[in-house]
């Protein structure tokens, strides 16, 4: 039952693959962003897990000195704080792009957008300049 000890890592792998699959398999742009979020969040979990020391507390010096206190490694937490900010920025930018795409194409389904783009291509090629 050694694999149970890596419980967090299994969740990480599951979330990562679920998110990744959603990004690839879904045609709806919002769902793609949701998938991307799950994908990124799984990495947050990976970092938090690796920083955990069993039996460790928060890395704050308690009253009366830190003698013999076991604490978790704070560095992965700090790192992932940065990655969370990056994730928020990516999501915001992605959603902003989706708003613009919706304005331009009137849809957020990938296959419908592709149809519109292909039609535009054939129109341009037959009908001369359309700028």
């Amino acid at each position: 039952m050694a694999w149970l000890g890596h419980f967090n890592y299994w969740i990480f792998v599951f979330l990562m693959m679920a998110g990744f699959y959603t990004v690839i398999a879904r045609g709806n742009l919002i769902k793609k962003i949701v998938g991307l979020n799950i994908f990124q969040t799984s990495v947050f979990l990976l970092y938090i897990t690796m920083g955990k020391v069993s039996g460790g507390t928060a890395p704050i010096v308690p009253e009366g000195g830190s003698e013999g206190v076991v604490y978790s490694n704070p560095i992965p937490h700090v790192l992932i704080l940065t990655a969370i900010v990056v994730g928020v920025a990516t999501t915001a930018l992605g959603l902003a792009l989706i708003v613009r795409i919706h304005e331009a194409y009137d849809t957020i389904e990938e296959d419908e957008i592709q149809d519109i783009e292909e039609n535009a291509n054939t129109l341009e090629n037959s009908g001369g300049q359309a700028s």
Binding site: I98, Y105, I113
Partner: peptide, 8 residues
């Protein structure tokens, strides 16, 4: 408008 989908 394809710039938007390309950026996405």
């Amino acid at each position: 408008p394809k710039a938007l989908t390309a950026a996405f």
